[in-house]
């Protein structure tokens, strides 16, 4: 039994070793740089790769880890450059108590403020404590989920537009559309803010080039597929957001 187990483990490790040896992380900076400049070469190389989806997955993990680490350090620096959150909250509450609003309203406002305060801290990265460590895991996972959703939907659109590429090739090419997210590394410096619209629009432009190359689509069809994919996901995301919000209101009986 142990011998059988050892043989299986050896086979798995050999397989993993083979997969890892296929990856070309040394090319990622060049791929991303060229993709950001909308050059076709990285998409061609990605599409011709043995395992484009695996390459895309590893690329997303690398980008996700880099962003997560940058955000964590940026959050620590931000926290150290601002007053402690407790002091800030008590200053706010003290000022509230001195206001002319009646007792019931004050109590309600104070309760709401205390309720949303941890969420504000968690999402701003300011004094977010252990939540920072959670972002280390959540950021790469979130990026992988987004990439899969964007890639699979984009593949469906491209196929509908007459594209010939495989799903693996689409996923490989679409992974490069995460290139603009590298700008988030700059958030290692506190108070740097990256416009979300820049990340999305630049990502769509790169995805357009990726679909054009991976599926050998004419420019117009590729553009429609890229924009259509983004719009569909935006719509789906908005619906999910509104649904969750409505659920919270209904479940909580108000805000």
């Amino acid at each position: 039994m142990p011998r059988l187990f050892r043989a299986e483990a050896h086979a798995i490790f050999s397989h993993l070793e083979l997969i890892v040896s296929m990856l070309q992380p040394q090319n990622y900076p060049r791929f991303l740089g060229q993709a950001l400049l909308l050059e076709p070469d990285p998409f061609v190389e990605m599409v011709d790769d043995d395992n484009p989806w695996l390459e895309g997955l590893f690329l997303c993990v690398c980008i996700g880890i880099l962003i997560a680490v940058a955000r964590m350090i940026g959050g620590l620096l931000l926290t150290a450059s601002l007053p402690p959150s407790e002091a800030l909250l008590s200053a706010l509450l003290q000022s509230l108590r001195q206001s002319a609003a009646n007792g019931e309203t004050l109590l309600e406002v104070e309760r709401t403020l205390r309720g949303i305060w941890p969420f504000l801290l968690a999402f701003s990265g300011y004094d977010s404590g252990w939540f920072r460590l959670l972002t280390l895991a959540v950021t790469p996972l979130g990026l992988i989920c987004q990439w899969l959703l964007f890639g699979i939907t984009g593949h469906a659109f491209a196929r509908a537009a007459g594209g010939q590429g495989s799903l693996g090739q689409t996923l490989g090419a679409m992974a490069l559309s995460n290139g603009p997210r590298l700008l988030y590394i700059l958030t290692i410096i506190p108070y740097v803010s990256i416009a979300t619209v820049l990340i999305h629009v630049w990502g769509i432009l790169i995805a357009y080039r990726g679909l054009e190359v991976a599926h050998e689509l004419p420019p117009r069809q590729a553009a429609l597929a890229a924009v259509g994919t983004w719009l569909l996901l935006l719509l789906a995301g908005s619906l999910v957001g509104v649904g969750l919000g409505a659920l919270m209101v209904v479940a909580g009986g108000g805000l």
Binding site: A87, L88, Y191
Partner: peptide, 16 residues
């Protein structure tokens, strides 16, 4: 309110 970093460094980081 006081922050952990010295004032000049906080000022530099935010201006940067």
């Amino acid at each position: 309110l006081e922050q952990p970093f010295p004032g000049w460094f906080t000022a530099f980081l935010s201006a940067l």
